[in-house]
Nucleic acid binder design. Sequence first.
DNA 1: CTCCTTAAACTAATTTGATTAGTTAATTAA
DNA 2: TTAATTAACTAATCAAATTAGTTTAAGGAG
Lengths: 197, 197
Amino acid sequence: MDMSRRAKIDLEIILQKSTEMIDKNGLDYLSFSLLAKELEIRPPSLYNHVNSLDDLKQLLAIQGLKGLYEYMLLAGIGKSGDEAIHSISRAYVEFVRKHPGLYMAATRIPHSLNEEFAHHQQAILLLVVRVLEIYELSEEVAIHIVRGLRSILHGFTSLEQMGGFGMPLDIDHSLTILINTFIEGIHSLSRKEKMTD
Amino acid sequence: MDMSRRAKIDLEIILQKSTEMIDKNGLDYLSFSLLAKELEIRPPSLYNHVNSLDDLKQLLAIQGLKGLYEYMLLAGIGKSGDEAIHSISRAYVEFVRKHPGLYMAATRIPHSLNEEFAHHQQAILLLVVRVLEIYELSEEVAIHIVRGLRSILHGFTSLEQMGGFGMPLDIDHSLTILINTFIEGIHSLSRKEKMTD
DNA sequence: CTCCTTAAACTAATTTGATTAGTTAATTAA
DNA sequence: TTAATTAACTAATCAAATTAGTTTAAGGAG
């Protein structure tokens, strides 16, 4: 009879609520204590769905990568070359802005021990590699470029999240310039490679 | 008579030991419990030197910025232009490799509430701005460039630290390429600005 | 050299959060 | 209708930060 029993919580709801919480307050403020309060259950009940707090964070990290991948995939469809690079870059930034906590979870996971995590990471890598194919770079140069783009996007978004760009000067414009610069570099490398063919 | 009493701990020793610990095991594994064990005192004794664990982390963050600044300053001396950019960039990376925990402390500080922290951050910013002066960029463009370089360096080092560059392909070479690309972009922007003079 | 002040250690106790153990009630399937 | 399972609960444990209150060593004043 007691309606308050049986709150029909499941993993999905837990992930949903945790996501909401970390996107709002930051990953570090996620605790079973608070989460349980939000879900109106007792902390130990969470163990029926999740192995531990760290486990939950791993699941969130995977959610983060999945979401990021989907954003980028969608942004890359029907585009190619420079336009595609701009597009997936903007998507990356958009995702981080929308889900800062999830993104942080994805980047703070202790050395990707998790297989599923590694898998999704690989998916994103391949997505970028595919976008770069049109430039006909050697495999080695392509790897350097992928690393470069990841560095730029991760660095930019992380700094933005931590409020690292103090001044009011248009932040999106900074990104555009940065990406343009990088794209010019890709062209330059592409030309150099063609010369040694 | 008991020599074990009076361990002559002071703030300096605490910072030293904590630095050692976080550089070795990561910021997240720093606790008063472990730190006290290392110093052979009881956890509450730490409060004679530090207000809280968070306070200690703030102090470490400041140490991190100071160290980073010193590395970059030293690397920038007697150099100019492209060479200076490469040099301070390499110094940045070196510092993070040598003090990953300290660097993480410096980048995870909750929204630079700390005045001293902001001050050191500003110092680094100005150092980079000075290095860029030779390119005669407008103030606005200079800001975008500084943001770009920070993004690159923070992103690159963070990814490297989290083992994000899976493949064995030379990581330093990736950085060199990335910085070269970026420098080309600076030249390009510099040219464009001269044309509109 | 002895006393006083103080810094810096200590022990004991509190609080909070994760986690475990053991119990119970509601749902589901036979 | 009943047995099995799921998912909640309470009670208890453990670890870590923090606070309160106490004690002792060291250094200076007399």
